[in-house]
Design a protein around this nucleic acid. Structure first.
Lengths: 235, 235
DNA sequence: CCTCATTTGTACGTATGTATC
DNA sequence: TGATACATACGTACAAATGAG
């Protein structure tokens, strides 16, 4: 296991408590000193864990007062969908697999060049369509290197987030990335999948996502209809 | 001065050396131990400074080897323009002020609600058009609270970056933000400014940018033609 | 307005583990 | 294998911001 490190365990523990609602937005976490006592670690270890939570938007911290819980952030490097008009439950989002993950050659049309080690490892490829209340809102193509991911091709990406799977199964976490954005007109394939007329404006994102593994990047292309729902994300 | 803290001074020193080319991409920084000796500070202080540089993409760090310089990052929370076809000098980007910064009421059409303290402080508003090789590529509207920004209305935003000005003049640095993205059709105003035909796909970004000042956010709307130049950024 | 306890931020020193070369 | 360098972790001390009184 790669989870021996203490600050990581504490990070996971606190993170879980925020995600599952033990702490709700506006709540205050215990002080560094208190946490240090309860987990039996040095204050610096606690600070490291809290620093991670700050970086990912789970909490905010200000000198002189305790950490304030902000809740589960909307998209950490990822983008999530949000209604432009009314609040909408996240559970209304469903995923339809167009192509299940499979080994195939790297696409030639990526915005960002694949690194040598990744090219040699081969490519896991899949396509998904996301629907909100039955309406298709975005179509995405994901490619990632086939490196030390035992049993990955069997995972059900319909119900689980790719990023959650990578984090919990393989300790791969997103550390940042580069993205390129375009507004385009819908082509034939997009018209079909996204159910729009010819020439409808579509938001395209090409991204190279970096992780804590030095030579492991996720390459994705996302095509999104933003007429009714905007794409929202943190940076 | 807010720059008494040591790790911040060391951060600025190293950052400057990367930006001005003393260190070029691929170079290695001195080891933590060496830096600790040259600056006469503890290793932890060096680590804090290097951590900042990592977070902003100036360097990458891996256990067992020295810090590797990546160069000046393209857009930290900001977006910069990059040609989709060929490499293009950044100096070809020119800025045309449509409306110089002025005090006015907060716009009602922002994606993100303005915070109470900001609303009371009033709004500094300006509009700019960015051109690449003489071709307009994006039009942006920026609004920020009129809080402790002496002489700001006089600054020439044509030649200087807003973010550089805020950082060097007021020690305000971007810490993150939320953005909402849309693909839209060009309306009459955008057709005029961006020189496109009716209905041309336009990329719209609405963003709320957070800073190190607790109650100071920058609200911006960006409208971008991505036909020839993509919008690129880190997250 | 000032004081004081609490809490976080910065900084130092030291030790050990682990990855890279 | 050994030397180098970064990562984690402990302990301590003081500075600075916050909020309560």
């Amino acid at each position: 296991m790669g989870l021996l490190v203490q600050y990581r365990q504490i990070y996971e523990a606190l993170r879980t408590q925020i995600v599952n609602g033990t702490y709700t937005p506006g709540d205050m976490l215990p002080s560094e000193h208190t946490l240090s006592a309860t987990y039996h670690v040095a204050r610096m270890t606690i600070r490291k864990a809290l620093g991670q939570l700050v970086a990912e938007g789970f909490i905010v911290r200000r000198q002189g007062q305790r950490s304030i819980v902000k809740g589960t952030p909307k998209g950490i490097g990822i983008l999530s969908i949000m209604s432009t008009t009314s609040a909408l439950s996240h559970s209304d989002l469903s995923t339809h697999i167009i192509r299940k993950q499979e080994l195939r050659a790297w696409s030639e049309t990526l915005s960002f060049p694949v690194e040598e080690k990744e090219r040699l490892a081969g490519c896991i490829y899949f396509e998904r369509l996301r629907l909100l209340g039955g309406v298709p809102v975005f179509f995405d193509i994901t490619q990632l290197p086939n490196m030390q991911l035992p049993r990955f091709p069997e995972y059900d990406l319909e119900n689980r987030s790719l990023f959650d799977s990578l984090r919990t199964q393989y300790q791969i976490v997103v550390t940042g990335g580069t993205q390129q954005l375009f507004a385009i007109r819908a082509d034939k394939r997009l018209q079909e999948y996204l159910n729009v007329r010819a020439g409808h404006p579509i938001l395209q994102l090409n991204r190279k996502i970096e992780t804590n593994r030095p030579d492991f990047h996720i390459y994705s292309q996302i095509f999104c209809v933003t007429q009714k729902y905007g794409l929202i994300g943190r940076f």
